[in-house]
């Protein structure tokens, strides 16, 4: 018993490693651009990678861990992007931008989380492909509403944001997303969410409050999608409803299923690989857009759980002491 615990313990990183690793990453994210070692183009690509990691991680919570399928994730991203952009452009004075930015991102995330309720409630009664329809419909309604609001530019889009997103902010939010999702997944809440994927009915019958967990999962997922939207809006400095269409949602699906469902490492891998692949394929012009859908179909046929499917690299799992406190007990005795 003890042996098997220690075996699974190997390679897991404790809290200190996380703190140090995160600080090191943040320092690099500041140093590399500031020192000029990293050119603007590379920074831009890395920021896209980071934003896509946040989107993929958050979508994986619902699709991979909970086993529901949300296929309208771009709708949440849109809510976050517009709310954050409106806050920095129209609500607060422009000069306050850098100070207000984190607040704007969080507000965008919260607005998206609120929108997440729109999808969470129908999910109590509908599952599977019907829920897929609900989420797609949500995506289309968001897009349609944005196209109809002239105050945010309607179909022409919204602009005027300063370029407030930088590599440090993106890396910071990637780390926050990763840490929060990891802590949630390795807890009672996370186990309940996974139980919904495994067998929702049985979950209900072991006292798992599935409606509440669905609200948590959808809102948390939407929150981070909203934050990613805010980062995206302040990177591109221009957003329009079409950027958040089903095509965007499909991109996120490709990244989730490429990297692997139910895996944090998979999400990071999938988002990075796909973003870089699409960047490399730029010379193909229009044909580039055929790659994603084709990849998705092939993945579903040949490896539906993705590269990392349901597996986690050890250094992303909490140590036993972090998860349950066993380690502390063991050391004391």
């Amino acid at each position: 018993m003890k042996k098997s615990n220690q075996a699974s313990e190997r390679g897991r990183l404790g809290g200190w490693y996380w703190t140090l690793g995160s600080l090191a990453l943040l320092a690099l994210a500041w140093l590399l651009p500031a020192s000029g070692i990293m050119n603007l183009y590379l920074q831009q690509v890395l920021m896209y990678v980071g934003i896509n990691i946040i989107l993929t991680l958050s979508l994986n919570l619902v699709n991979g861990y909970m086993g529901e399928f949300s296929v309208g994730h771009a709708g949440f991203m849109a809510v976050g992007a517009y709310v954050a952009a409106i806050l920095t452009v129209a609500v607060f004075p422009r000069a306050w931008g850098p100070v207000v930015f984190p607040l704007a991102l969080i507000m965008g995330g919260l607005a998206a989380a609120l929108a997440g309720l729109v999808v969470a409630f129908p999910s109590f009664r509908t599952r599977g492909d019907y829920l897929a329809i609900v989420t797609l419909a949500f995506n289309m309604i968001v897009k349609s509403i944005l196209e109809n609001i002239n105050a945010v530019g309607g179909p022409r889009g919204y602009m005027g944001m300063s370029k407030l997103s930088n590599l440090v902010w993106v890396v910071f939010w990637v780390l926050v997303t990763l840490l929060v999702l990891r802590n949630v997944i390795y807890s009672n809440l996370g186990r309940g969410i996974i139980a919904i994927r495994e067998d929702e009915l049985a979950a209900n019958l072991v006292s798992v409050n599935t409606p509440r967990l669905k609200i948590y999962a959808f809102c948390l997922s939407a929150f981070f999608a909203g934050v990613a939207g805010g980062l995206y809006a302040h990177l591109l400095q221009f957003i329009n409803p079409r950027s958040f269409s089903i095509l965007k949602s499909t991109d996120m699906l490709v990244m989730v299923y490429l990297g692997g469902i139910g895996s944090l490492a998979g999400s990071i891998l999938g988002a990075s690989l796909y973003t870089i692949l699409m960047e490399l394929l730029r010379p193909l012009e229009l044909w580039r857009w055929v790659v994603g859908p084709l990849l998705l179909v092939l993945l579903m046929i040949f490896r539906p759980t993705g590269i990392m499917g349901l597996k986690e690299v050890r250094w992303l799992q909490p140590t036993a002491s972090e998860e349950t406190g066993w380690g502390k007990v063991a050391r004391r005795s």
Partner: peptide, 20 residues
């Protein structure tokens, strides 16, 4: 899940292929 996502993928493939 796999079937539905495949169907979405096929649809997008047809659109983007036609576009290209």
């Amino acid at each position: 899940v796999s079937a539905v996502i495949t169907a979405l993928g096929v649809g997008l493939f047809l659109e983007n292929f036609t576009l290209a």
